[in-house]
Simulated scan of single mutants.
Amino acid sequence: MTARAGAPSSFTVTEFAEVPSLGGLYAKGAAGSVAKRPRAGVLLPQVAYRVPGVDTSGSAARLAEYQEVVGEPASGVLSAGFLHVLAFPLATAVMVRQDFPLGLLGMVHLRQAARVLRPVRIGDRPEILAWAENARAHRRGVQVDLVAEVLVDGVLAYRGVSTYLAKGFSVSGDAGGVPGREGAGQEAPDPDTGAAGQSAPDAGRAPWSPPLPTARWRLGKGIGPEYGAVSGDRNPIHMSALGAKAFGFPRAIAHGMYTAARALAEVGPARRGDAYEWTTEFFKPVLLPGSVDLAIRYAADSGADVAAGPAGGFVYDGWRTGRTTRHFTGTVTPL
């Protein structure tokens, strides 16, 4: 992941006075998804959204609630998970544009990669940028990166890349965005053949055997609404069994970013430091209520499972307790 700040120079930058509300964006995205049917030829809008100064001084209570939900220790420093939450509505606003070719409903979150280069604290007035780039082929459709950056005093503090899959679409000719950037040429895991929302391991990989767990999470059905309240992400698949069943799930599923953020919290601020890289690859969804085993270990001791991961730092895996159903894997690497 590059450390440079700013959208590609060819992009038009549209400025917002404040970060938009996710609730209204979801409603717009749901309505607009109907017209965005799978087709060939995906061209991304060459536009970036920008909020020049976000007042975080009023977010102390929300940050404290977020830290309690995901297990982060109380602090005035915004973790990478909370920075994602802060920037996610602006990235969603890009996805619900009329000229964004992929429908918001059914988008599968495959991977999250973030880099924190300096601490962002309550009281800072960060600038937030978001745009979409790097549409590329996947055997099930089209992958696209949603990029979010947070700058403090004009200096890049955080860069997050959320990789999504839109099934049934295909690229042809110029895919839009900027080719050759993060993730280009890499094929993400096959999505689950069931309902959209999470992904499943690549069928071509060797069978996976869980390592020795270092923690066990017992997740009640209320964790979806709890994380939804602190993140603003109230997608129906996380809120209730009824909402999840409407999208083909047997019951509500945990937010992928909740599980990733909780794993980041398990690594802890002391071990990751002030500057770190954090990645998560999502596999099978976590059904609620449910139990998840987690293993955190040094990357140097993790073996072939993370051959593509960074040297040094920590590796984590989460899977269904008593099974080999892998939910996610990730890395935390001090910089």
Rank of each mutant, 00 (worst) to 15 (best):
Y49D: 13
Y49S: 13
Y49M: 15
Y49V: 11
R50I: 02
R50W: 04
V51I: 09
P52K: 01
P52Y: 01
G53V: 02
G53P: 03
G53R: 04
V54A: 06
D55P: 03
D55K: 02
D55T: 08
T56F: 03
T56Y: 02
T56S: 05
T56V: 03
T56G: 04
S57R: 14
S57N: 14
S57Y: 11
S57W: 08
G58Y: 14
G58S: 15
G58A: 15
G58L: 14
G58E: 13
S59W: 13
S59G: 07
A60I: 11
A60T: 13
A60P: 05
A61H: 14
A61Y: 13
A61M: 12
R62P: 07
R62C: 09
R62S: 14
A64E: 13
A64C: 11
E65I: 10
E65S: 14
E65L: 13
Y66A: 02
Q67R: 11
Q67S: 10
E68C: 09
E68K: 15
E68Y: 10
V69L: 10
V69F: 12
V70H: 12
V70A: 10
V70E: 10
G71I: 14
G71W: 15
G71K: 11
G71H: 12
G71T: 15
G71P: 07
E72N: 13
A74L: 11
A74W: 06
A74C: 06
G76Q: 02
G76W: 03
G76N: 05
G76C: 00
G76M: 02
V77L: 03
V77A: 08
V77W: 03
V77T: 11
L78E: 04
L78V: 05
S79W: 05
S79D: 09
S79I: 09
A80L: 08
A80P: 04
G81Q: 01
G81N: 07
G81C: 08
G81A: 12
F82T: 01
F82W: 09
F82R: 04
L83N: 02
L83I: 01
L83S: 00
L83G: 03
H84K: 08
H84R: 09
H84T: 11
H84A: 14
